[in-house]
């Protein structure tokens, strides 16, 4: 694998009336747990969507796993696992059926699929409810299932778009633990969040994005000491003059 799992070179994404991502350049090393931090509407989801090939950048280029995302779409798709911001799962299928469907989409063999399925259900605390239909799940349960769907094929590069939003503290902890475990296995994780403590606890490095611009990239500790403040929350205030979560 390439030294860099993710490379963005001067990427711009314009929608009709807004510039969602504004000249962003970024390198994420293989095996790194990177957090993209920013308020709602900052451009996090747009960034993730360009990285996993769902959106075409207006200009600039994007590489994942050494492949040009636009030109070698299929190669990239086999490498990555994506947990989208909206909890996309099939409500009329059970937890297990959702998982097996995605396992089959990644053409896992039966044995691998059932082993991964059971392990992930256990890790995400969904084993008890695996046979229930997803429409009966709580919001937090759907999120945990959504994470399982992204990880079923044991991907090398993982995109998690606000994975812990609306989760109870206990589930959030379980997800954090699991992310650290994945990092120990050498996986690259690209996480977006607007939870400061999540970024601070988990990430090797964070990028702070505001109005589509990447305004700071470094290890949380370095950012905190660089701006002489107590935490990432205060780094954001220092940089922008606003609180990150005022609109939530």
């Amino acid at each position: 694998m390439d030294k860099f799992a993710i490379v963005m070179e001067d990427v711009v994404k314009n929608f009709e009336d807004v510039t969602a991502v504004n000249h962003v350049s970024l390198h994420v090393a293989s095996g790194e747990l990177f957090g993209l931090l920013g308020p709602n509407g900052a451009g996090k989801t747009t960034t993730v969507n360009m990285l996993c090939g769902l959106l075409k950048p207006t200009s600039g280029s994007v590489f994942v796993g050494g492949y040009d995302v636009q030109k070698e779409n299929v190669k990239v798709k086999e490498l990555i696992g994506v947990c989208p911001q909206e909890t996309a799962t099939y409500p009329y299928l059970t937890g297990i059926e959702n998982i097996e469907l995605f396992g089959n989409l990644y053409t896992l063999d039966r044995k691998t699929l059932s082993a991964r399925r059971d392990m992930l259900l256990e890790k995400m605390g969904l084993a008890q409810d695996a046979k229930r239909k997803v429409e009966k799940y709580s919001g937090g349960m759907k999120r945990r299932l959504s994470i399982i769907l992204a990880l079923i094929h044991n991907p090398q590069i993982i995109f998690l778009d606000e994975p812990t939003i609306g989760m109870d503290p206990q589930s959030r902890r379980a997800v954090w633990d699991f992310m650290q475990e994945l990092k120990r296995e050498g996986k690259t994780i690209f996480l977006t969040t607007h939870y400061m403590e999540e970024a601070e606890i988990l990430c090797d490095r964070v990028g702070i994005i505001d109005y589509g611009k990447l305004i700071a990239v470094d290890a949380p500790k370095k950012l905190i000491s660089k701006y002489g403040v107590a935490n990432l929350e205060e780094v954001f205030i220092k940089l922008t003059g606003r609180k990150i979560r005022e609109e939530v």
Binding site: V74, K77, V82, P84
Partner: peptide, 14 residues
Amino acid sequence: ENGMMKRIRTTPTT
């Protein structure tokens, strides 16, 4: 609407 189309598109499904 529920984002499943997009989600399927992130998999290698053609």
